[in-house]
């Protein structure tokens, strides 16, 4: 790690003030994306503003229509929340599969989403459920949030505060692991709402994306066989030693079918 200054923020306002004062600051939440990046010396922030102590950004609230998760809620809390399990079991299941137990104890939902790692799990749920991302300044629709590799609609110094996930009739998430890192090589989140079906994919492209052809087919008939023959073109998909674009394209259909079959 390069040297940096460290600050602890008690409130969102406090964090914003510290952010403005620093040259090239970064917010630090659970640190399970940022610290590995710093250890590899892939980033060189002048200041880290530790927001993990801001109590208002933590916790899970469940209503009949939405599950709202504070940005600083660690994955383990979402995974084990009986209210989340009841309202959107696929969301709890997704959180249960992130990284490993120790990562889930520290890593936060906000950190994961704000970072938009192409292989992270949460973006699939955010997009697949059509969630609303709230920041200190505004609300952003999921469809307008993910912009590219590690790129989101968040502006410099904007803090993601919570995300509100609409409760679907049923939803499923299925991930195919990149064997070494166990991030998603391909992850597919499928959600069935009264008004239709949403299908979101992570791991396969520069950032999470939806698959309209699958949504259409599943809206007509919510069953694995409805996806038969529907594939995502390989052209724009990621390709690496663990999976060519062609293989990823194939896996999207396989995982989508399995997500539908597993949807609850």
């Amino acid at each position: 790690m390069y040297a940096f200054n460290y600050h602890r923020a008690k409130t969102v306002a406090d964090a914003l003030k510290l952010y403005k004062k620093a040259d090239d600051p970064k917010f630090l939440a659970g640190g399970h994306t940022l610290i590995p990046t710093l250890k590899q010396r892939l980033a060189r922030p002048s200041d880290l503003i530790d927001i993990s102590g801001i109590a208002t950004l933590k916790g899970v609230k469940v209503s009949k229509t939405a599950v709202t998760i504070g940005a600083l809620t660690p994955h383990v809390e979402v995974a084990t929340s009986s209210a989340v399990k009841k309202a959107i079991p696929a969301l709890a299941g997704l959180a249960e599969e992130i990284g490993d137990p120790q990562v889930r104890h520290r890593g936060t939902m906000g950190g994961s989403v704000a970072n938009s790692d192409p292989a992270a799990d949460y973006p699939a749920a955010v997009l697949g459920l059509g969630a609303t991302i709230e920041t200190n300044a505004r609300k952003i629709e999921a469809d307008k949030f993910f912009k590219g590799v590690f790129e989101t609609a968040l502006k410099d110094g904007e803090i993601l505060t919570k995300i509100s996930f609409p409760v679907p009739e049923k939803a499923g998430y299925m991930r195919f692991d990149q064997p070494a890192s166990r991030f998603a090589l391909v992850g597919v989140f499928v959600a069935k709402f009264k008004g239709g079906v949403r299908v979101a994919v992570t791991g396969a492209g520069p950032c999470a994306f939806r698959v309209p052809a699958m949504e259409k087919a599943l809206s007509a008939k919510f069953a694995p066989e409805a996806l038969e023959g529907i594939t995502v073109p390989a052209d724009d998909l990621n390709s690496d030693i663990h999976g060519s674009a062609e293989y990823r394209a194939h896996l999207i259909t396989v995982m989508a079918k399995r997500a539908v079959a597993a949807a609850k």
Binding site: R8, G31, P36, L48, D50, D100, Q102
Partner: peptide, 29 residues
Amino acid sequence: CDTSQCGACVVHINGESVKSCTVLAAQAE
């Protein structure tokens, strides 16, 4: 390791297992 994966560094913070290679000392205040 240096990628937060091997778990040789696991300790408990407030009773919960965490990777102490991915937590700043300052965060354990």
